[in-house]
Structures are given as C-alpha cells and as structure tokens.
Design a protein around this nucleic acid. Sequence first.
DNA 1: TATGAATGAGGGTTCATTCAT
DNA 2: TATGAATGAACCCTCATTCAT
Lengths: 192, 192, 192, 192
Amino acid sequence: MTDSSAGTRSRGKRERLAAAAATVLHEQGVEKTTLADIARVAEVPVGNVYYYFKTKNELVEAAIETHTRSLSDLIEALDRLPEPAERLKALIAGWVEQRDTAVRFGCPTGTLATELDKRGDGLDATVADLMRTLIDWAEAQFADMGRTDARESAVALIAAYQGISVLTNTLRDPELMAAEGRRLERWIDSMA
Amino acid sequence: MTDSSAGTRSRGKRERLAAAAATVLHEQGVEKTTLADIARVAEVPVGNVYYYFKTKNELVEAAIETHTRSLSDLIEALDRLPEPAERLKALIAGWVEQRDTAVRFGCPTGTLATELDKRGDGLDATVADLMRTLIDWAEAQFADMGRTDARESAVALIAAYQGISVLTNTLRDPELMAAEGRRLERWIDSMA
Amino acid sequence: MTDSSAGTRSRGKRERLAAAAATVLHEQGVEKTTLADIARVAEVPVGNVYYYFKTKNELVEAAIETHTRSLSDLIEALDRLPEPAERLKALIAGWVEQRDTAVRFGCPTGTLATELDKRGDGLDATVADLMRTLIDWAEAQFADMGRTDARESAVALIAAYQGISVLTNTLRDPELMAAEGRRLERWIDSMA
Amino acid sequence: MTDSSAGTRSRGKRERLAAAAATVLHEQGVEKTTLADIARVAEVPVGNVYYYFKTKNELVEAAIETHTRSLSDLIEALDRLPEPAERLKALIAGWVEQRDTAVRFGCPTGTLATELDKRGDGLDATVADLMRTLIDWAEAQFADMGRTDARESAVALIAAYQGISVLTNTLRDPELMAAEGRRLERWIDSMA
DNA sequence: TATGAATGAGGGTTCATTCAT
DNA sequence: TATGAATGAACCCTCATTCAT
C-alpha cells in the first residue's frame, strides 16, 4: 500500500508535469512558456523536472501525447454512438461546447502544430500524426455513410474546425464557432 | 536634394525593414526571429533598427501593415473583375497558387494571429483587423450574389482557407490546398 | 554467513566503484566525469554510491589509491628481475607497450596530477605521493647501478615519460613513445 | 585620433579578454574557469563577452592563439642569437626562469593540451599545432648543429620540458626544473 | 544497506534594448 | 541619422549532494 502509493506519487508527478505542460503550452504557447511555468503549475521544483524529462522538447512531446490520449478517449466515446452521422455531429458538438477555450487560446492541436512548424525540431511530425488520426477517423465515418469522397470530406471537416478556431480566437467571438457548428451539422444532415 | 535623397533612403530603409519583417516573421515565427535576423535580411545595421522602430513589437506591427497593404492591393485587383462569384474564385485561385508557401510556412496572417494571441501585447487586435477586412470583403461579394447568409458564408470561406492552410502546413501536402480549392469553387458555383 | 556475504558484496561494490573511477577519470578527465558515469560503469545505482563514498573527491581519492596499488604490483614484479638496469628497461618497455592508451588518454597519473592541481582540493598531495613513489624506486635502481646522480637521473627518467606521454597524447602519435623508449634504453645501457 | 582610440578600445577589449582567458585558463584550468571569471579579470561585463566571442570555446581558442603569438615572439628573439646551440640553451634558460609559475600551474601549453584532450571539442588540434611549432623549431636547431637525429632530439627536448613541468608542478619543487635545465644544457654542450 | 527521487546552486548562452559617438 | 558596442535579465540545462523509505 505504501509502496504502491510511492510508485503512484512518482508516476503521478510525471503525469502531472505532462498535464501541466499540455495546459500551459496551449495557453501560453511553446516559446513563451518556461520550464519554470510548467513546474509551478505541476507543483514540482524546477530542478526536478529534468529527472522526468531530459529536455524541454521532451516535455512538449509529452504534452502532445497527452492530447493524443485525449483524442483516443474522445474517439472511443464517439464510436459508441450507432450512426456515423451522429458520431460526426457529436464531434462537432464537442467543438462548439469548448468554444470559450477556443476564444482565448485557439485549438490546442492547431496552435501547437503552427508553433512547432517554426521551431525546426522534429516535433512537428508528432503533431502531424495526431492531426492525421483525427482526419482518418472522420474519413472512416464518411465512408461508413457511403460517401465516395470520404477523404476529401474528412479533410474539409477538420479544416473547417481548424479554421474557425483560428477565427474564433483571433476575433474573440465564440458565436463564430457556434454558427460554423450549425453549418457543419446541416452539411452532415444534407448527406444522409 | 541631399535631404530629400536622404529622406528617400530612410523611407527606403524603413520599408525594407518592414518588408523583411513580414517575410522573416512569417517564415521563422515571431518568437524565433531576432531583430538581428530582420536587420540582416533588410541589410540594415542592427543598431540602426531602433531609429525606425522603437521596439520589436513595432516591427511586428509594421509587418502586419505590410500584409494589410498587400491585402488592399489584392482586393483592388479582384474588384476589377465583373462578377462577385468570379472575384471569390479568383481569391481562391490565389490561395491555391501559393500552396507551396503554405506547405512550408502556413498562412502569413493566420500563423501570425496564432502567435500574437499568445504574446499578451496588444498586437492581436491589429491582426484581427486584417482578418476582418478580408471577411468583410468576402461578405460583400456574397451579398452581391444575393445571399442572405452572406456573413456566415464569408466566415466559412475564410475559415476554410485558414484551416486548410494549417493542415497543408502540418501535413506538408500541397495537394490538400488544391483539393479544397476545387471544393470551394464548386461551392461558389452551386450558389449561382 | 549472510552478513559476511553482504560484506563481501559490499566490498566488491566499493572496489568496483574505485576501479570504475580509475578508468573513467583517466579517460574522460575529472571535471567531465559525473558520478552517474562512474556508477554506470560500476553497475551501481547512483543513489548507492554515497553509501561508499561521501563525496566525489573521495571517489577520486579511491581512484588514486587504485593506481597506487597498481604501481606497487608493478614494482613488486620488476623487483624480481636481477639487475637494476634490467628493471628500469622493463619499466620503459611497459610504457611503450601501453602507448596506444597514451595516444588516447595520456598517462593516468600525469593527467590526473595536472587536473587535480587546478581543483584546489587537497587531492594533489595524494597524487604527488604516487609520483614520488615511482621516482624513489627509480632512484634506488640508479643508486644500485652505482650512479652518484641517482636522484637527478630518476627525475629525468620519469619526466621523460611524463613529457613523452603529453606529446604522444597531444600529437596522437604512438611512435613518439616508441622512439623515446628506445632512446631511454640506450641511455640506460650507456651507464653500464 | 579619436576614431583610432575608439578602435583601440574595442580591439583592446577583445585582446584584454583573450589575454585574461590565457592567464585564467592556465591558472584555473578550462573546466573550472567560468566566463564570469574571465570577464572579471578583463573588466568586461559578462553579457558583453558574447559580443566578442560567441562561445566559451572561442575564448579558449583565442587563449591558444595568444600563446601561439607568445611563442612566435620568443622564437623570433631566439633566432637573433648566432649559434643554434646557444638558441636552444636560451630556450631552456627561459623555462628555468619561469619555474615558479610551473610550480603553481604547470606549463601553459601542456596543461591546456591535457585538458582539451578530454573535452571532445576540436580544440585539441589547435594546441597540437602550437606544440608542433615548438618541436619543429627545435628540430631546425638540432639540424643546424649537424645532428642526423634532429627530430628525435627535438621531441626529446620538448618532452623533457613537458615532463619536468608536470613534476615541478605536482611535487611543488622549482629546483626540479632548475636541475633538469642544467642537465639539458650539458646535453646540448655534449653535442658540440 | 540500498535506491529512486528530490533539490538548488550555478554555468553557458541569447537577445531585446540602450548607449556613446 | 547612423552604428558598433554594451548591458543585464532570463532561459535551458547539469550535477553533486541529500532525502525518504
């Protein structure tokens, strides 16, 4: 019991750091975020961070993995819905629900991808995987609906979300996300 | 004569700096770009930059203004086309033409907006104006086409471009932009 | 039984650490070597090192002692030879044999002495003892040969070795050591 | 005059840094010396060091160059002597003169070479050049004296100096250097 | 005895900004 | 106006040493 809680505390710390990284990197951006910021949020002494992550990049990587896991969970939940159209609309509904976060910080994945592209380390490939996972899942839904242009539709859907996230964030207007959500839903409905 | 040529040279320097800033900030990102980088590209001594721009932020602002002027020029050119639908399709065609740049650096305005949002200075409002200008123009075209949902369509169009820019850049695939361009054209055509 | 075997295991660990320290400190230098490096080579967990050595300096001391013991063994072996001139020439032959190590890392004692001198801890005195032991032994051989300048010759011999080690290492040429070895042998022979 | 003094001040600063580096690196060793140490001795603010030297390694390189220049000056002075044997003995006399420095810090070139070998950067090649320059010069003198074994003698001479420097430093005894100096002089004399 | 985890001081380096001329 | 030089705050990272168990 004591041992297990000790193990838990250690693993907990790593996870706390990864979670803090995911949040803070989203909110402040990769470049503006210092290790001290992440350490503070995770309530871990700065020097100790390096016991778990050898470089700042590894911390960014862990943040991406956190997002990847979130996406997996989301997909798993959506897959429980019976109809592909419903699944897609539930995805959209989720986006709309989080529109206030989008207003303040944009899409976590999209802004991260944009920033990592400029950095020159190899991390952009990792976010690309994450992005592809989402597109692939959407494609599967469109295919399930019998669409022959499933890939193109999937790309268009995710692009619409990425784009409206940028606009919602830039123009500080959550209603943009809401309206686009309704438009996308109508689009899905028009396919049935 | 000497003064005027000096003035000319100075204005030339200021513009060279603004242009260099626009390019380099797009390619490297705001945070990764140093004043020295911009000065080097503009072929202006580092110490001299501060004669024209008191802070790095003012240089970023100048870069945005450069983009704003580019947009004005573009709009002016598009407005010479007779039909609103043609104008919109010409806009889209321009996006597709520049897809290789999007692959490497994303949309200049979008990535800048994403980065500036994280910085906390007041510059995000300036990019927002730029973004709004484009949306407003698109809205005018849709209205001209007799659409009652002109604003929503305009937002959707620009969002589509922003989003596909993110995906094109992240996934390093220019074909994404091309395909989305064709899709958007079809959409415009379907409105006629 | 358990205690004794534990004790044995412990002494084994202590010796493994000292041996690892001797090797790694020679190869990487004192400053560039971390405790983790030594622990890894000795296959001892980092945290456990401090049970045997309270500070890094103590580990350096142990490394010196390891070298001292090696020197004792060497001297013991040389002393089995009947003639002092033979003993000295056997010493020289040993140096030449190890010239490839000298090329890569220099003389273990000499480089250690050079490094420890800069550190300001009291360890330089310990290497000095080691160095003196070798000189003393050489002096005894020269005296045994009937030389009245035994001390000076001994110093010259060891200096020649230290110096050619520096050059062999710096210029990365094992042949330097070999040639100097032949020269020194001739010198010894000329005394008989 | 003003301009030239301004230029002098700048160049002076760079040189002051290089000179400080040469001294401090010799006295404290490369690893133990911080940039702040060098900056303090050169009376230059720490942040300003990087205006002249982009990395610590460049500062080390500059220190080596300082030593190289000193050697050139020395050689130039020695070359004014008429006889090669005299030149070599003057070289030796210089070593003996500086025996108190050797006691405290060893030979600047030798200790630097020993330390740089462990560091893994490419600087060891630069010190090697310095060392070779000295050997080459000595070889020329021995050749001038009609020796067929000029190279070997040159290597032996420099090795003797390097080695006695190590011993003088390690055993903290300036008399070692003095005695070895006399021995080497006799050796030179025996060649005439 | 044994060990993973924690800690904090300090080092090298970058860079926006300012200064002196 | 122009410019090389100066400045210092902040950042990432390393590591000897200590702690808790």
